[in-house]
Design a protein around this nucleic acid. Sequence first.
DNA 1: CTGAAAGCGCTTACAG
DNA 2: CTGAAAGCGCTTACAG
Lengths: 337, 337
Amino acid sequence: MKHLPRVRLAEVAALAGVDVSTVSRIINGDPNQVARPETRQRIYDAVVELGYRPNVVARSLRRSTTDMYGLVIPDFSNPIYAQIIMGAETRAMALGKHLFTSSSVDLGSEGYLELLGTGRIDGLLVSGETADVHEKLDKTRAPWLFLNRTSPHRPRYVVLDDVGAARIAVGHLLQLGHERIAHISGPPGADTARRRKAGYLAAMQAAGRRPTKQDVIPSDYTNAGGANALRQLAGSRRQFTAVFVASVASAIGVLWCAQHLGLRIPEDLSVIAIHDLPLASFLVPPLTTVRMPIAELGKRGVEILVSQPAGAVVEEIVSAPMELVVRASTGPVSKLR
Amino acid sequence: MKHLPRVRLAEVAALAGVDVSTVSRIINGDPNQVARPETRQRIYDAVVELGYRPNVVARSLRRSTTDMYGLVIPDFSNPIYAQIIMGAETRAMALGKHLFTSSSVDLGSEGYLELLGTGRIDGLLVSGETADVHEKLDKTRAPWLFLNRTSPHRPRYVVLDDVGAARIAVGHLLQLGHERIAHISGPPGADTARRRKAGYLAAMQAAGRRPTKQDVIPSDYTNAGGANALRQLAGSRRQFTAVFVASVASAIGVLWCAQHLGLRIPEDLSVIAIHDLPLASFLVPPLTTVRMPIAELGKRGVEILVSQPAGAVVEEIVSAPMELVVRASTGPVSKLR
DNA sequence: CTGAAAGCGCTTACAG
DNA sequence: CTGAAAGCGCTTACAG
């Protein structure tokens, strides 16, 4: 026994003394339906008395739409996604849709593809650096959109201005007088990492610097990755006075490793990272960040997915403002070095 | 245009030259169906050639089951939930089910109730300290289960051994020689907070201590809450040498505030918290924790929800082992004080 | 063992 | 304006 017997439309209609089609139209607010107020009331009463709730599966079969959308993320433990999800959920709710989130990792490498093209959901937001699945996604014939990543294969994505955010971060360090600015970048395969690195290089070149390969330490978006990267940086010949870190997660590892190595922040090394989180204020020292409109990203993703047909061309950079949040991890370049 | 026309069962049957019922039975692995190998092959070929994928909405209507389950959490930004979700998703996948997560905040205070009792999902895991919704949940007649919280109203929950975890934490501090051990507890309304506090009180009493109200500082599961609580503690007359913090989130605020106040950890104050996270290793100093089987909690929740009928009595404490993870934030009581 | 038929619970053109 | 009927795409007892 899974479910107790449920009340159906027919029972409501019988109790109210009208046809099922009338009840259906009233419930769905059909403007052509202008039943007498008393009839209308009888129907409402019957609905309440029986505790009727429409079977949305039957409705979905008939309308061939479920009003449900999916969001696939690589990993729930990355706090950035929390804000993307919240933005997406809020917008979906406002549009009368349901948004569900799953992680691609645990659905199996590409198991989330099973969600699309079987009528289960009306569309899917695909976030994170999944392998090149655009062909398989297309084969489902259902609407989908890359979120927070571009794609060379399909013009179907919405992203943040990661290039611009990197420029802001590097600009802040330059303004503080730093000359030797390293970049701890994200995983080489990650599209966000690529764009943040591009922004770093552009900002450095615009300031007349010529960053070399040694100035960029590839890492990943984890605490341990950041710690390893700083260790590598500290062992190099070049003397850096500042580092632009591609993610808060890595920056946490950087702060930890700096403490470990006896490097004072910001006296010996200024640290700035992309994305702001409540946690950033409570790090030791509090972390300077570039706040990006993450919730807005989720919101736009839903808006586009809901409104655009399956094959539409979407190449959007969310335009909501970014903000430099200066905390204690950055300071003027030390005269001592 | 939302969807391109989809391939239906009838088209597969036509191409394979058999009845739809035969295709259906083959696809679903009906053991009574023993078609000739060549017929069977023709059907498989037709499925592949047409790219047929069953319409799961039609299937759901017929079977009155969706194989989809929901998990509602209060807030995606709490990293504990990441592990609950991963455990739940993994188990669901292994059982051939889909698990989707939504946050209750953004579905509206009780908007997630709309998910149940409309046939959309087969059952719901309700996590976090939502208001007393047991009556409304029951009214949906669908299976549901509280996750990580008990309920005085319905014997339908699976939780972790928070009392035992608190005993382990306090036991560790006692063993280090601490006499004055404060407790920064969770929000008063939270069931986990209640049980962790109960464990603290029990462990203290068992050791011959008589903790008073002043020894317990109510807080919430946030960085800021922990910082405020330590500030309060530092301002009190009593001299504490150790604090048992109900959550890692609060403990991060405690570490930050200690630094701010010039308190050395662990020399001046030992700090231990419930739940382990990768982040704990990268705090300054690294945080001693009690690791709990969080993923297992999600796993058991799914197992029970999938297997038990709607009204079943479930009062389970997940029995997987807990582990004290000693890092640098705890140490022997200082002789100086 | 397999085909024909009924039916899951709705929605919505179509008549009246 | 409202009722009767068809039909969304499957699954599965029921006959043969």
